[in-house]
């Protein structure tokens, strides 16, 4: 290791005297790390919040409801208010100049713009 790296104590030591169990004992290298944890979705599923009384707060039922009135539509490119939608790319746009830009965009850019508002085509 380079002197300045050691100097800055950049690298986390593998052994700490204040720990009862060291990480190398807990997480042997041979074991894949992906097996060791559940994602939030899996945690929620395993918790099975439906079993709990509905009036008690839990992680799922404190989520905000969807909005009641329709959302403002803004131009995907410029952020102005967008009265139009391009039927081909499905991008929202504010005026003819933006439309010209939209039509000259390569398709991966179109998808990236769409993915900002989570509307991109996702292939599974």
């Amino acid at each position: 290791m380079e002197a300045e790296v050691i100097e800055a104590e950049l690298v986390l030591p593998t052994h700490f005297r204040f720990k009862l169990v060291q990480s190398y004992e807990k997480y042997p290298k041979s074991q894949s790390s992906a097996r060791r944890f559940k994602h939030l979705k899996q945690i929620i599923q395993a918790e099975d919040f439906h079993r709990y009384p509905p009036d008690g707060p839990n992680y799922v039922n404190i989520e905000s409801p969807p909005p009641l009135h329709p959302c403002k539509r803004i131009c995907d490119i410029t952020g102005y208010e967008a009265p139009y939608v391009d039927p081909r790319t499905k991008l929202r746009y504010a005026n003819t100049e933006v439309f010209k830009v939209i039509r000259s965009l390569p398709s991966d850019y179109v998808q990236r713009y769409l993915s900002i508002r989570n509307a991109a085509v996702v292939l599974k």
């Binding site: 030591p13 005297r17 204040f18 009862l20 807990k26 944890f37 945690i43």
Partner: peptide, 25 residues
């Protein structure tokens, strides 16, 4: 959700707090 990463973070945090020796926090 990833307690392996959480452990690295706690290691670093306790280490920088100056903990050493005594086998536990």
């Amino acid at each position: 959700y990833q307690f392996e990463i959480m452990e690295y973070i706690l290691d670093f945090g306790f280490d920088r707090m100056g903990a050493n020796g005594s086998q536990q926090i």
